[in-house]
């Protein structure tokens, strides 16, 4: 187990693709149990950084550890200890709710009993126990997203990465989703989340804003608004992103 205070430690993370620098010297620390908002314009380098943190891609240089493991040498161990959910890929649409839980639980080496217990627990929390044998494709998007999140944290990962988890979701479900995020964080899971909804940025404990591969701002929403003399996170974001040089 990782005993340090940080779930993610990234120092001077650099990722280059040929002559293009996608991540230029990123340094940030994410505390355990923190909800960390990872913002940036399209093409600012967010996806590249998330891939590195999830152990899917190796950085060019830097000192990075996730859940106490080195991304260069212990990527497999990292994958065991994180959960991942994105707007695009989350659940198998042609499988039932329970089958999805069973499949993902199995991937992370959970026992049958553990899986059954977790499935009941998660469905109970969402108040949808009766949907356990329903095919995912027939469920509304809101419920799917909540289920996907439940699946991503069913193996009690140390960190869960959420890539635009609420895109296109109705405003009520969006709020329910964030309540789930808060509950997960309260139970000790670190949440690393990206979003295009600037009001959601306010829900994060701390935020980083990436512009052109660099972190231009890092702090609590209140700090960032104060520093940039802005009324909302939207203003902060626009002020920073408008500075972008190579928008391509």
């Amino acid at each position: 187990m990782n005993s340090a205070a940080y779930a993610i430690e990234a120092q001077n993370l650099v990722k280059r693709f040929g002559s293009f620098t996608a991540n230029d010297n990123l340094s940030f620390f994410v505390k355990k149990g923190e909800i960390f908002g990872f913002l940036g314009a399209n093409g600012a380098g967010k996806t590249t950084a998330i891939r590195i943190l999830c152990g899917l891609s190796k950085p060019t240089s830097g000192k990075i550890s996730v859940a106490g493991f080195n991304v260069f040498t212990q990527a497999e161990k990292i994958k065991q200890r994180i959960g991942y959910m994105s707007q695009r890929f989350s659940l198998y649409e042609d499988l039932t709710v329970a089958e999805n839980f069973r499949f993902y639980g199995g991937i992370y080496g959970m026992s049958r009993d553990q899986i059954r217990q977790k499935t009941e627990e998660m469905l109970g929390k969402l108040n949808i126990a009766e949907l356990r044998d329903t095919i995912i494709a027939s469920l509304p998007l809101g419920i799917r997203q909540k289920l996907a999140f439940s699946v991503a944290i069913m193996h009690s990962p140390e960190i869960v990465f959420l890539d635009e988890p609420t895109g296109g979701v109705d405003p009520i479900t969006r709020r329910q989703f964030w309540e789930m995020i808060y509950q997960a964080a309260a139970s000790g899971i670190t949440v690393f989340v990206t979003t295009h909804y600037m009001d959601e940025a306010e829900y994060c404990h701390r935020i980083s804003i990436m512009v052109d591969g660099r972190i231009e701002a890092l702090g609590t929403p209140a700090e960032l608004k104060a520093v940039h003399h802005a009324l909302s996170m939207n203003d902060v974001f626009i002020k920073l992103a408008r500075k972008a040089v190579n928008k391509e």
Partner: peptide, 13 residues
């Protein structure tokens, strides 16, 4: 149809 979905705040504006 949803021209601004998945587009960042600056581009949306």
């Amino acid at each position: 149809d949803e021209p601004t979905t998945g587009v960042d705040a600056v581009s949306r504006r």
